[in-house]
């Protein structure tokens, strides 16, 4: 083709970089993304900062170098990019969770640890120096995914409701998608009214009865 392999590589890298930026753009209005970034992480300040009251341990509006503070992820991340703080591994990825996941991943209550376990993990992995988080997420997801899909297709709603209190937000989305797919399939097979009252209104009507 007469094009050096390097130029195409560079193009590819550029594309990656651009797509990454667009990703960030894409999620600007995402409700779940915003809520997820509110998760707190503990950080250690590498630089002092004045005029902010985010350290509950100090009475003055001043943060000393080396003080340990709990910050929401969005703030911790931006400060970490500027080397103002170093981020500790959040407690939901600690040794205890790992052992439990290793023993029986499908039974672990991940929601109480972090409602956005996977997404949060993906965001936190590049900024803490723990290389194993990626593997942890992948193996946890793989083994739980199977369980979720089987249950979504077989369990009735009442029995299933106990099961889904331990799922993370991402898993619940999967679970609901699987269930609605099954419901639409059944509806299609049986037939029936294809055109119905708008869902916004039908809920109202039910509650009034």
């Amino acid at each position: 083709m007469g094009v050096s392999p390097f130029s195409s590589l560079r193009e590819w890298l550029d594309q990656c970089r651009n797509s990454k930026r667009e990703d960030r753009m894409d999620k600007y209005y995402h409700i779940d993304d915003i809520i997820m970034e509110e998760e707190t992480v503990s950080v250690i300040f590498q630089k002092a900062a004045s005029g902010v009251g985010i350290d509950p341990g100090s009475t003055m509006d001043y943060i000393e170098t080396g003080s340990k503070v709990e910050l929401p992820f969005w703030l911790a991340h931006e400060l970490q990019l500027r080397q103002a703080v170093s981020v500790n591994v959040p407690s939901c990825f600690d040794q205890k969770t790992r052992q439990e996941l290793h023993a029986d991943s499908a039974a672990v209550d991940l929601r109480s640890r972090c409602p956005f376990f996977y997404e949060f993990g993906c965001k936190i992995a590049p900024i803490v120096d723990d290389r194993t988080i990626g593997f942890l997420l992948l193996s946890a997801f793989k083994s739980r995914y199977k369980e979720i899909l089987t249950k979504a297709h077989t369990v009735t709603f009442a029995a299933g409701s106990k099961f889904w209190t331990i799922l993370t937000k991402e898993e619940i989305n999967l679970y609901e998608t699987a269930q609605s797919a099954m419901a639409s399939f059944k509806k299609w097979r049986i037939g029936g009214p294809r055109f119905q009252i708008a869902s916004v209104l039908s809920r109202k009507r039910k509650s009034m009865e």
Partner: peptide
Amino acid sequence: ADHYGALI
């Protein structure tokens, strides 16, 4: 310190 305070 003021810079980082302002940043926050």
